[in-house]
Design a protein around this nucleic acid. Structure first.
Lengths: 158, 158
DNA sequence: TTTAAACGTTAGTGACACTAACGAAGGTAG
DNA sequence: CTACCTTCGTTAGTGTCACTAACGTTTAAA
């Protein structure tokens, strides 16, 4: 007669910040597994999407739009440029900047990664009805929107 | 006439795994700030709650109930024991185990930390109605419950 | 009685958010 | 023009956290 598989106390289970941490871990693992199987990364997708949506941009712009720190952006762009998903060239109009441009190969890569990520989201949200998925997205959006550096912060990009 | 503060592409903003990651970071920061201001830690609270709810337990039991790895549990219990919030003594019935017991001081500490955490949750969920907060908690619970090691895994406690 | 498992513990890994500081370039004020 | 401050790309580094590996000890199972 073995002991029952110790339960987590209810008082602990019901704490939103803990639930968020837990689901975020699950979600990240789901996405990460799929992407790394194809030699890709979360951040690659974010950059490619941003370029596809808003056109060529500087590294600092990409940082602000994706939320990836500009110090981390360097490595991401190295990898994307090495694989020819992206071109990186100095901006003649402002010689501090690099102009990052999506290549045709990059666009195809994006479609592929997009499918992988959509798949991961589906698996993540599997136990929810379509209505619940929308509701969850809505609620989370409200939260991230609300908790956010008051305004377009003074200086220094993320 | 400056450029408008670069927006995140909609295609990126609407991805649940990204939203979860974002809110989890905010939530963790909110909780962490309050606790660290009192020299406490997330994990301290989890252990104290578990002891209060389910009584004395071994370190491995605490690990499984809280989700804290038993390798990390060691340091947590060192700190809690040093502050006399918890007693740690060898289990005479099974000399592999330590029995961890909540002290009266620990119980008072718990009440304090509980207030801090409740406060953080309130700030986190501030932009939501009470109904929405419940709904969010419900949805997240479904997700964590669903994505979870199939059954009481073979061996080796977290 | 041999084997396997659980326990507490130490050490270490990898991912990721985040900071600091740098030289180079550009913008602005005197 | 000069001085100053900001932005940009880049390098290096920090702290936290989830997670793994391995160990010696003790207990349970075969």
């Amino acid at each position: 007669m073995g002991t029952i598989p110790e339960p987590t106390p209810a008082r602990l289970r019901a704490i939103p910040s803990r639930l968020l941490a837990g689901t975020a871990i699950v979600a990240d693992r789901l996405v990460g597994e799929r992407l790394s199987a194809e030699g890709a990364h979360k951040w690659h997708f974010a950059v490619l999407v941003t370029l596809a949506e808003a056109g060529p941009a500087s590294q600092a712009e990409l940082s602000r739009r994706t939320g990836i720190y500009r110090s981390d952006m360097v490595a991401v762009l190295n990898e994307l440029a090495d694989a020819d998903y992206v071109r990186r060239e100095p901006d003649p109009a402002d010689r501090r900047r690099n102009v990052i441009t999506l290549t045709p190969v990059g666009r195809r890569r994006l479609e592929h990664l997009d499918a992988l990520i959509a798949d991961a989201q589906r698996e993540l949200l599997a136990p929810l009805t379509p209505g619940q998925r929308e509701e969850l997205t809505r609620l989370l959006t409200v939260l991230v929107e609300h908790h956010r550096p008051p305004h377009p912060r003074p200086h220094d990009a993320r």
